[in-house]
Amino acid sequence: MVIGPFDLNALEVAVRLKERYGAQVTALTLGSGKAKDALRRALAMGADAAVLVDDGQMAPKEPSVATRALAAAVRKLGGLDLVLCGRQSGEWDFGQVGALLAEELGMPFVPFVPRLEASGDGWRLEREVEGGLLVVDVSGPCVASITNATDNQPRLPKVKDIMMANRKPIQVWGPVELGLGEEDVGEAANRLEVLELFIPEVKSECEFVEGDDGAAKGAALARKLWDRKVI
């Protein structure tokens, strides 16, 4: 069990913030008992605590359901200044958890963040936008989804931290601890179903436009384009 690539970037950003300002970093994941391996890596990289939301009694098949469970855990943790997540998961790449989490928690959401720093009583975040960067200020806590950048490459854990990580407790919470019912995270809560996964076929063909001279070829080309509604 490994951590998704962007989640590793998010973790790195969190640990750097901790090193800079001093903080308590909690790694949170939703999954089966196997996900504890991933949480141990997070602890070895510098997280102070780890929480596994055990999905054994849940059916988090779509992001909204998964997020409901995660949001309940975030609320239970309480007193947070910042919630970071990866830009998208390493499996389905839905890229929704950050936004949905912000909605559930009633916090502002900033996506595609490569780096951020403390500012006033909140945060100053850089956000990647088409062809550039956008800088935003948020007062109070927010949710940010982290994208990869050269300055947030996940660090390798040290041997001793790996050993320590294996001795730290990992909290495990199920629907009971989180106060979630069947209607929140059960089978029936899922309304989205993936029907098919496929790689679209891209076809290309090549056609030579015939004609006696340039003008005739030009006219023939124009006709073809007209027929295909290109012009």
């Binding site: 141990r40 890596r41 070895a44 390798l156 854990p157 041997v159 790996i162 050993m163 990580a165 294996n166």
Partner: peptide, 8 residues
Amino acid sequence: EQKEVLAM
């Protein structure tokens, strides 16, 4: 523990 060290 061994797995993590090796992965690192």
